[in-house]
Structure formats: C-alpha cells, structure tokens
Design a protein around this nucleic acid. Sequence first.
DNA 1: CTGTTAGCGCCTTCAC
DNA 2: GTGAAGGCGCTAACAG
Lengths: 321, 321
Amino acid sequence: MTNIRDIARMANVSVTTVSRVINEHPYVSEEKREAVLRAMERADYQVNMTAVHLSQGKSQLIGVVVPFANHPYFGLLIEGIAKKAVESNYHFVLIQTNYNKEREQEALDMLRHKQIDGLIICSRISGLDTITKYRQYGKIVICENAKGNRTIDSVYIDHYQSFLSALKYLYEKGYRNIGYSIGRETGSNSYFRQQAYRDFLKQKDLPYQESFVFTENYNLEDGQKVVNLIQQLFHKPDALLVTSDVVAAGIITACNHTNLRVPEDLAIIGFDNQPIAKMMGITTFEIPLVTMGEKLFQQVIRTTSTAHQQFHVTLIERNTV
Amino acid sequence: MTNIRDIARMANVSVTTVSRVINEHPYVSEEKREAVLRAMERADYQVNMTAVHLSQGKSQLIGVVVPFANHPYFGLLIEGIAKKAVESNYHFVLIQTNYNKEREQEALDMLRHKQIDGLIICSRISGLDTITKYRQYGKIVICENAKGNRTIDSVYIDHYQSFLSALKYLYEKGYRNIGYSIGRETGSNSYFRQQAYRDFLKQKDLPYQESFVFTENYNLEDGQKVVNLIQQLFHKPDALLVTSDVVAAGIITACNHTNLRVPEDLAIIGFDNQPIAKMMGITTFEIPLVTMGEKLFQQVIRTTSTAHQQFHVTLIERNTV
DNA sequence: CTGTTAGCGCCTTCAC
DNA sequence: GTGAAGGCGCTAACAG
C-alpha cells in the first residue's frame, strides 16, 4: 500500500505538495503537479479516507436509525435522505433496530466514537433523555414532534391535528363508531394520536371503546389480524383510521374475504399515500415522506442552532370512505 | 476531546497500559487498571474509532449497493445482511444507485479508499470487468450467477432453471401463450431468463412473440402499465411470469378494473413470495431472499477463496394459475 | 511556490 | 507488568 510519503519521494517533492495536488489546492507549479500525478499514476496511489477523516476529525458519514428497513414508510424517508446525502457528498450507515434498545444504543455509540458525524433517528425506543445525553457528541435529529427540545432537532407531522381532521372528516360523512389502528402503542406519535382521538370523542360526546383501538400493526399481514378482531366484536366499528396504507390495504383485502364491505360496513382512511393506496383506491392522508427525509438530512449536517420543522398532511379522497 | 494520552497522564501510567485496559488485554495490575478506569470515567473518555480503524487498517464497515432501497426485493436482502452484520459487529453503508453508474462508482471508490472493507452488490449496472478491477482493494460479492469468476464471489438463484420450471408448470396447466415481465432488460439475471424463455419456446415449438415480453417493471404501479399494453394487443398472452410479486399484484389489481379475469383470461406467476403474494393469493416462486442476504454478508467478510453459492426457488401454488 | 514538522488518536513491537 | 517509541496515512500551520 503506497502512501502519500512514497509518492512524495517518487516525485521528488514534499508530502505537502502531494497533498496539495490531491486536494487541488493552489500554489503548485505545473511541473511538480505533473510529476506528482505521474507518480500517483505509476504507483496506483489511492487516498486512505480513514486517515483523512482522522486528520479532519469527521467521517462524512451519518447514521440512520430505523426500526425496519423493509417498510415503505421508512423506505421513503431513506429515499429522501439518500437523495440529499449524495448531493452533499455524505454517505450513511443504516441501523435497523427492530425497536431493540441495544441496536439503538449501538447507533448512539457510533456517534460518540466518532464513526459518524450525526444521527438521524426515524423512530426510537429509548427515552428522549437518554438520546439527549449523546447530543454532545454530534448532531441528532429525530422524526417526531420535539418542538420543546433545545438540543435535538426534529422534522415531524403534527399527528394530533392530522388525526383530528381525519376524525372530523369521518364524522361529517356520518360515521359514529370510529376506531383506529396504529403501530406501537408507545412512542410520541401514538401518544398524540391517542390524545386527538380521546379529545375528539369527548367533544362529540361519543363513548371511548377500547376494542376500537388496534395496535402493533405494521404490515400487510397485520390487516388480517385487525379484521379477525373486528369479526369477533359484537359492537363493530364502522370506520377505521389506519396509520399506514399497507395495513389499510391488508384490512381491505381481508375484508374482501369476509362479509364486510368497504366502505359500506367499514370505511377506511389510510396514511402516507403509498403506491398501494393509489392502486387500491384507498382514501388516505398523504405524508410528504421523501421531502421529510431530505429535511432530516439537511438538518443533521447543518451546524446552526436547533430547528424544528413541521410538515402537513393532505387528504386524498378515493373510494374507501 | 480527551484522548488516550490524557488518560495516561491522569492515571499516571503509559498509553500502552491505557490501551490495554480499553481493549481488555491481559498483563495489567488491578490497581493500575482501576486508576485508568477512574480517569476514563472522570474525563468521560470515548475511544475514537476512526483512529482505531486507521491503526488497524480496517473499518468494520461494508458497502451495500442496491438500485432502490425502497423495494421489497432489496429490502429483504438488506434484512438478511443487517441480521448477520450485527452478529459480526459490522455496520454497513447503504448505497442507492438508481442504476446510475456514477453512484455505483462511488461505492467502488469507497472500497479502494478504504472507507469500507468489502462490498456487496445486490444489482449492478457497470460491467463485471470494471468491478473486477476493484477486487484488489477488498472483497466483492455480487448477487447473480458469477460461477465462472475467480475473484468475485457470488450468491445467486439459477434463473434459467427457475424460469424453465415456471414455464413448464404453466405449459402443463395448458397455457400456450405465455409471456413474462421483468425489470431491466439488461443484466445477467434477465439474460438467463430470456435464454430460458427462448429455449423453452423452441423446445415446445411455440412462436416467440416480442409483444409478450414486458420490461422495466419494478413496482406496483407498473402492473397497470403491463395491463394497458396487454389490452392493446390483438393476440393476448394467457399467462404471465412476473419477476416480482409486487408487480404481479399490480397486474392483478389492474385486471380487476378491466374485463380480464385472473386466472381465466390471464394466469399469473409471481416471484419472491412477498407478503403481498400471500395476501392476494398469488401463485409464486419463493426466493429465500433473507437467507441470501445473510450469505452475502458472510461471504463478504470471509477471507477464504472465492465462493459461489446457489439457492433454489420453491413453487407456492395459490390461486392465480 | 515549497518543505519541515507537528499533530489527529490509537496500536503494537520491543526492551526492561 | 510496564513503558518508550515508531507507525497507520493525511493535513495544515509555519517558515522560508
């Protein structure tokens, strides 16, 4: 492995000069530059980026934490992140946690061990206080409402308002037995949605039915699970807010195998506006995930003060309400 | 930023000793070890992995090249890679190429610049000869049949045989106007499939119809495209091999919006056995993508000689044939 | 314009 | 057990 010193020797110049031509810095005479270039060519010289990074104290690498890489929601966020990373000459290491604290800790450790310059957490399992401790080692941005936080950046959807408007929409369409399906029961996004749900019911003087809340639904297959549960209910919901179009698609498909008609017996509103929603004509709230991913990246490399950026959802009316 | 030398000073020992306790090497007296530990605690010492990596000449990082991260096929490969990477204390940087040569080149460059120790190419656009040149900088494993290659490792499906058995299956079911849908027209996987298709037709004395081959289909939405094309055909295929369950799902959904009945008017066989195939009852060939991902990773960190590992597909009979 | 030199932070051989 | 010293490969301030 030939290094910068070897090249210097071969070209009869100093390492500084070599470094200068590598980095295209000015103040190098044309002849020396060519001598260096020739030497590099001859020796098939390759810069060692690890050394560059050590010397510069940064890695041009950021960490991206997702619970599941193979899920369209996170896939779209990653899409946006990747897009902007390329433009800024960054790369990213993907850390799939499966909502396992140890995996998440690993990402945090990479930050303090200077393997990565910053960290994007698309969904977390650790407490915000734990994460905040690592802020001193590098920029951290999370994908949830952290408006109050003065150290952690955030890019988010106001899920309280989104849920509220979805509920109102269904209410106006005449539905009175509205339930919802989410992924994790914990997590701040779920918290805000639950809050909206309860506030809405109170406001409309509707009863809270525990059996109308379906949790741990992430994928297509989980739709079947939801429908099975509904089938067992004596008092069934007549509309469902589903925090993922793929789950919504799963529910609709499962319904088609039963006597439940959509939307006559069960109205469905999805979230994200994934391709599958368009394909199946699912009424949904579009979330600008790719754009959010782009912002997540831009924020993580920005050195300025903490920022919080809110995004909005857009109702896409189709045939499931 | 406090470093190993500071700790040594604080604990009144040499850097060697500090290094020893950090890496849990033997030959350190209990009292010195504790002194070091205390100093590290007091100063909130954090190892700088970049320095470790420079010193050791490796990064514990591998590169993973995919055309699209947000696609279930690659999502499952990544799933498998991630699983094994964790176990081996490796991380990976994800490089999404969109089948853009420059992006792919970037990954190759990371390898020769020692930013990554090895490279997994899930699907490529560059020529194999180009890639081979980079083998000298680190291990490379690709996800396609490269049995002959003596430097590049591979993990693959015999797409020739898979396609052939799928065609035979359809033939035995009585279909005589079989077409197929693939992603890229180029690429070795496509080549083998095309070969199988042509050989099969010849063997059965069936005519080759250019209009029965549908290319550039990757996603759900592309299914609609295929159906639109079929609708315009006077002589329509009565069965389709579709190299992705999501595309198959898209085709079926699009058919439901037309007068085409599946499988009466058009039989469909998918590939991968994705969740959506199960959900929609699509007959498909299961590809062990997660397992293949695991193998891809194991091969990339293995220092032994070049290996080529073949995997097999399994027919899953459901309702679309 | 160019070269010397001191880092960046850690590992590891070798001698005591 | 322990430490001094050289090395990993590159950058950048400083002196000329």
